[in-house]
Simulated assay, not measured.
Amino acid sequence: MTEICWEEPFCGEGNNCFRLGTDADGNAYIAVAGQEGAYLTDTREALSTLIRDIKAGKADHLL
């Protein structure tokens, strides 16, 4: 199994917390904080776009 380097949890309004991670191959991962074993994966570019949209308030309904 690929080793994922998880960042500190990011918590939005209403305690919607998630963690972001990457592996050595450049794959990006996102998981609900505390449930890192059940994650989604995509390219680093796709994850970066998602993060920018969340922080801009465009995708807070996804949390």
Rank of each mutant, 00 (worst) to 15 (best):
T43K: 13
A56N: 15
F10L: 12
C5R: 10
T49N: 12
L47T: 00
T43S: 15
C17H: 04
E3P: 04
G12L: 15
L50Y: 07
A46N: 11
I30T: 01
D53E: 15
F18H: 14
L50P: 02
A59Q: 15
C11S: 14
N15Y: 01
D53C: 13
R19F: 00
C17M: 05
E8L: 09
F18T: 10
G34V: 04
A31V: 07
W6A: 05
A59F: 08
T43V: 09
Y39V: 11
D23M: 11
G12Y: 07
W6T: 05
W6S: 07
R52E: 13
L63F: 09
D53W: 07
C11F: 07
A31I: 00
G34W: 02
M1Q: 12
F18E: 03
W6P: 02
D25E: 15
A56K: 09
L47W: 00
E36K: 07
R19T: 13
A46V: 10
N15L: 02
K58C: 03
D53F: 11
E45P: 01
I30Y: 00
F10W: 05
C11R: 14
N16H: 10
T49I: 13
E36L: 06
D23L: 06
K58N: 14
I54S: 00
A56Y: 05
D42V: 00
E7L: 06
E13F: 04
E45R: 02
T2D: 15
L63N: 04
L20S: 04
A28V: 05
Y29P: 00
S48M: 06
E7M: 12
E36G: 03
I4A: 00
N27D: 14
R19G: 00
N27Y: 07
T49L: 13
A31L: 05
H61E: 14
H61R: 14
I30C: 02
G14E: 12
L40E: 09
R44G: 03
G57S: 10
Y29R: 03
M1T: 08
F10C: 10
R44E: 14
L20F: 03
T43N: 07
C17I: 05
E36N: 15
N16K: 08
R52H: 07
F18S: 12
S48T: 13
N16R: 15
E3I: 08
G57W: 05
A31D: 06
V32W: 01
A28I: 08
Y29V: 04
W6N: 07
L62H: 11
T43Q: 12
E7R: 13
R44C: 04
E45A: 04
A28Q: 03
D60Y: 06
L40S: 06
L40I: 05
I30N: 01
C5V: 09
T22H: 11
T43P: 04
T41E: 14
C17Q: 14
I54Y: 11
Y29E: 10
P9F: 03
